[in-house]
Amino acid sequence: MKAIRTIFMIAVFCFMTAPILVVAGVSVNEKKRLLFPPKGFTLDWYGELFTQSAWFNALQNSVLIAFFASILAVSVALPVALFLWQRDSRFARLLFSIGLAPFMLPPVITALGLLIFWVSVGGSGHMAATIISHGVFLVTLPLVTISLGLESINRQLIEAARTMGANERTVFFTVVRPLITPYIVSGFAFAFVLSLNEYIIAYMVAGFTVETLPIKIFNSLRYGYTPVMAAVAVIFALVSIVVFGLVARFGDLPRLLGAAARDAK
């Protein structure tokens, strides 16, 4: 039985890795052709991402957008999570639900709404519009992680600090913030990786002027294959694994994803 289970898990793992492995293979083909197993070996295509201005430009755009959008997402998520944690009011819960909504709905809905919005107010086609749109769209992730962090704080800690004379502000900076920092960081990491990979909103809001890497790949795909796409795909997969690996290394990832706290049993 255990053997069957292990075989099943490995089979699923193979299914999940197969496409990435094949893409990793084709990314090192010497010729500019889609071949697997690869013929020859070269890392030139990875280099082209940085040397070809069109690709490098897209890389720059993606990283800039992801960085600022994640900061924005955290800046919105943190007060919402704190607000709900401090006073469990109807408005706080509503605000929290609105923060969760973008991620629960098919993204094309938010994307079209934002397209029409930016066309109406005249921001369409600017990178700032993409940053704000991603920032609001990705609020859900830091909102969820920070709320989990706040929930894990024993409220008696707060009460203890209050009895020792700390005012609300001091309590926040000396007790709450240090305890939720790991959750803020992982919320930022989640938002960053998802912004890097996001396509439809970036495309609808400013796709024709501010090309991000996913947009660039998809546009290139229409005109045929180039191994740089494969290189980008591999880099993206690696970045995600490194980021989430770090989150797991410095935080309790199973807990963050909703498993019960590890007890000593």
């Binding site: 989640f190 998802l194 396509y199 795909a233 993206f236 995600s240």
Partner: peptide, 8 residues
């Protein structure tokens, strides 16, 4: 894998 772009 979840965060991997649909494009990729």
């Amino acid at each position: 894998v979840l965060s991997l772009s649909e494009v990729i």
